[in-house]
Nucleic acid binder design. Structure first.
Lengths: 129, 129
DNA sequence: CTTAAAGGTTACAGCCACTGGAAGGTCAAT
DNA sequence: ATTGACCTTCCAGTGGCTGTAACCTTTAAG
């Protein structure tokens, strides 16, 4: 199949597919006589796998490790476990940070009663907190 | 004061100060005869203000608007209110997205009982979920 | 007086994961 | 013959810095 077919089936943009090839995440497909990329059925599977990992916010380098791991049936699950666990930890850490941010912003947002910049309590707080 | 003094007082890196000047967020300071940047006391205030905004994850373009607003005492608080409210909304939206991500990752992380890649339930799930 | 360290300057490249656009080749239908 | 959709490559831009190189100035020590 051609690149746009793969793109629409796997729900990934054409640009992104070429980018993944460029950085070595997808192996280069064979080319037809006119130079067009020609993909196989299994490329759908790989690309959907990558898309799901991206939806979980996993970085492309980690995804590359996961894809490589899948190629080698003898390797252990430890790497996979680690990547998922670390990603979970990162997400949780970010959540904690965002909760603090939210508190600060909410406190700021509710405190401005003035209509003139010189009395704006938001700006006052940001200047001298 | 010199750039490194400003940097250590305002808790912003020297690189970042020069970058802020480059993008027009900080106005260019006067130069001493040797070409070194020479900063005033008020630059500390501005830079701390910017740093606090960044800690609230506010984008540099919005920060620029806030800084400009401060220069003009006649302008109203509406812009400030808007920027803070929008930032709060963005943070809350991100929090909702991360909560979903966390659920997905937690579900994945707890389901792998195997030690061989070919049976790894994490990879199975990611391939065919 | 020389020298070395510490700090200043500019300019360019890299990070992440794409995305946009230009300039051109190919294919199917009209 | 031409239109329009699709393909190709390559280069640049996004945000908010950070790293590095190459060079100049100031300051302290030997």
């Amino acid at each position: 199949m051609k690149i746009s077919e793969l793109a629409s089936i796997a729900q990934v943009s054409v640009k992104t597919i070429r980018y993944y090839e460029q950085i070595g995440l997808l192996s280069p497909p064979i080319r037809t006589s006119n130079g067009y990329r020609h993909y196989q059925e299994k490329d759908i599977e790989t690309l959907v796998f990558i898309r799901r990992c991206r939806e979980l916010n996993i970085g492309l380098d980690d995804i590359k490790r996961l894809v490589d791991t899948q190629q080698d049936p003898k390797s252990s699950c430890a790497l996979v476990d680690n990547i998922i666990a670390e990603q979970l930890a990162r997400i949780q850490q970010t959540q904690r940070e965002l909760a603090l941010l939210e508190q600060s912003l909410a406190a700021l947002a509710s405190c401005c009663k003035s209509h003139q910049i010189k009395d704006c309590s938001i700006l006052q707080t940001l200047k001298s907190a």
